[in-house]
């Protein structure tokens, strides 16, 4: 017996497409549109205050090169946050990986064999730290905040011990040559960032892994009862971010030609900020790679504009803080209008 009952929801205003201007901001592309506008505004400010200096190809590449390291970390962070987690230890992992990959022993081995040894080392160290984080969080049932806070302290401490608080200059020329080169005029670092972004987008939006990440972040209990191995998945998310940190360490080694335990300071804050202003929900269940990339670009462009105008880093920090608050406030209003918070 089929009965013809009304199916109107209890909250009739949710889930409907709003007509007009608001609709532009409602879709996943629309949320990014706000960020694009912000980025364009920043560029306009850059052009007005610094003119051709800002718009020069070299300067644009400088911005992108600056963005690439933190960008790779932020892509990884997007996965962890979308999956309902948080990682405060990324900066420390970057430092540890950079130091480990540039010790005398590693570099000697790299000189004797191939520079890929340094890359492998950094990735293994990063992935290993991520694995420890993931196992403790998923199987040890500890809070992500606490575990990664411990890793933040521990990894940077270990980096200091290994480096004996010295800066380790990279002497493997082939390594520096490879990562310092240009491909069709575009720095290799920027190419890596672009590739990681594309891979991240595909992974999040087109694969079962990405779909499960959204489910695990959105409702872990429902995901578990739907047969998804939530603990294993959570662990993999932290490993993924660890690998991203390892890669970032490689890029940083190439850019600065040195490994030190002070690399990656405050990366955790920059990455989380970029992810959040990009539109990924801090509580998990919704993530956007495009938003994260735009978030990273906004922050680095901001830094660039400030630097070109000889403004100090303290002013920059204040501006960053304001941007984070304003961006998240705007997003909340858009989300509230869509009824999909």
């Amino acid at each position: 017996m089929k009965t013809d009952i009304a199916v109107a929801s209890e909250q009739p205003d949710t889930g409907r497409r709003q007509p007009g201007f608001a609709a532009l901001f409602s879709g996943p592309a629309g949320r990014s549109l706000g960020l694009v506008i912000a980025l364009v505004l920043l560029c306009v400010v850059g052009v007005i205050t610094s003119g051709s200096l800002f718009m020069s190809f070299d300067n644009v590449m400088t911005i992108l090169r600056l963005a690439s390291v933190i960008g790779v970390v932020s892509i990884g962070m997007t996965f962890v946050i979308t999956g309902g987690g948080i990682d405060l230890s990324v900066g420390a992992i970057v430092a540890l990986a950079s130091v480990w990959a540039s010790t005398l022993a590693t570099q000697t081995l790299a000189t004797d064999t191939h520079w890929i040894v340094m890359v492998t080392t950094a990735l293994l160290v990063g992935g290993g730290c991520g694995l420890i984080n993931g196992l403790l969080i998923a199987y040890g049932r500890m809070a992500a905040f606490i575990v990664t806070l411990a890793m933040l302290a521990g990894a940077r401490g270990l980096a200091e011990i290994i480096a004996q608080k010295q800066t380790q200059v990279v002497t493997v020329d082939a390594f520096v040559d490879f990562f310092g080169a240009d491909v069709l005029g575009i720095p290799v670092l920027v190419v890596i960032f672009a590739l990681v972004s594309i891979a991240g987008w595909v992974l999040l939006n087109r694969t079962t892994f990405g779909r499960r990440t959204l489910a695990v972040g959105g409702n872990p209990e429902a995901a578990r009862l739907a047969g998804i191995k939530v603990k294993r998945h959570t662990t993999l998310l932290y490993v993924l971010l660890g690998l991203a940190c390892g890669l970032a360490a490689v890029m940083l080694l190439a850019r600065t030609t040195a490994g030190t335990s002070t690399h990656g300071l405050l990366y955790e804050l920059d990455a989380i900020a970029a992810v959040v202003i990009g539109g990924t929900l801090l509580s998990g269940g919704r993530g956007t790679i495009v938003g994260t990339v735009l978030g990273v670009l906004i922050f680095t462009t901001l830094t660039n504009v400030f630097t070109l105008n000889n403004l100090d880093t303290s002013t920059q920090a204040v501006a960053k803080g304001v941007i984070i608050v304003v961006a998240v406030l705007l997003q909340q209003r858009v989300a509230a209008r869509n009824g999909s918070t």
Binding site: L214, A215, G218, N219, A222, A223, L225, I228, G285, R286
Partner: peptide
């Protein structure tokens, strides 16, 4: 709380 990912679409909940 145990079955649905509320923020996701009907389709994605079905195929989960």
């Amino acid at each position: 709380s145990q079955a649905l990912v509320l923020g996701e679409s009907v389709g994605r909940n079905i195929t989960l």
